[in-house]
Design a protein around this nucleic acid. Structure first.
Lengths: 158, 158
DNA sequence: TCCTTAATGGAAACAGTTTCCAATAATAAC
DNA sequence: GTTATTATTGGAAACTGTTTCCATTAAGGA
């Protein structure tokens, strides 16, 4: 499939090219899809959202591209315990706020929160520094998740 | 398979019985296996370690039991990004120290660390309190992981 | 000791993901 | 703009960790 958007100068093109990857219509569509939502999409989710407009982008490409974007750091992969990987843009075009996750182990709902995030990030930075020195480990990323039962599920089964 | 250990009064029996589960030789073997290591075992790992002594404990039972023990809170399930769930005792017979994980994205090695853990736990407690109030969410658990590249992998490919 | 019911193992099904390969399209070189 | 090179692609098939199914067995209360 030819790249129909003329592959101009989107915010993310630089990063992808810097990593030696090409800009294609499929990749364009996948990033657009992730940028257009706050949901935590699975590969299948991305596929079905793209399929309407681009019927000829295959699921294999979705998997490959999400993987590549995760390598490049543009996309973050999460596991919320429902058996499939979930993806979100690490940082959107406008540099949205970093957030962490609150996962309901009953209904699998995920709440993004940014409360306390500054304290958390501050502590994480200190910890990262200490750990990377002690273990000679280059730390690229972190992940904080809280697990529990959400409001609705608490009501349904007290 | 009959329970050969006379199913006495192991440290974990209470919790399992309280949840309405029975004590069986398979469960005994699985907990023993987890208690005997600091590794992060997959279901298959547990299976192969048990199989020598108990050839008639099936893989299905391993999965079922690990799941049940996770429900009961005796075992914690982790995902380190290699496609399989990994398990460890939430707390051993002697109440070992809580720890967090440092995951190498190259070789998948996992380092348990307890440095800074007190600061982390302190912050987590505060955050948990704030979040559970704000979102009416009952928080049962948390998970912190750092991702990066370990000493050995850094040396191999600088 | 008997009885009820949870737990079990093995085979088969399942689901998410990866691999394979020939065809196609993005970019570099001209 | 044209051509050459090489990464990317879609679809089918393979793969792998996990779950389901069901007839059999054993735990634990009566």
């Amino acid at each position: 499939m030819p790249c129909q958007k003329r592959c101009g100068s989107q915010w993310w093109h630089g990063k992808v090219k810097d990593c030696g990857y090409r800009i294609t219509a499929g990749r364009e569509a996948i990033i657009d899809t992730l940028a257009a939502t706050h949901d935590h999409l699975s590969a299948e989710d991305v596929y079905s959202r793209i399929h309407a407009r681009f019927p000829n982008v295959g699921l294999t490409t979705i998997y490959r591209t999400l993987d590549m974007l995760a390598q490049a750091g543009l996309v973050s992969r999460f596991d919320f315990g429902d058996g499939k990987s979930r993806y979100e843009l690490t940082q959107g075009p406008k540099g949205e706020h970093h957030h962490h996750h609150l996962v309901c182990t009953e209904c699998k709902r995920v709440i993004d929160y940014t409360d306390f995030i500054d304290d958390e990030l501050e502590l994480l930075r200190r910890t990262e520094k200490g750990l990377s020195q002690k273990y000679n480990f280059r730390i690229d990323n972190h992940m904080i998740q809280f697990y529990g039962v959400c409001k609705d599920c608490l009501r349904d089964q007290p």
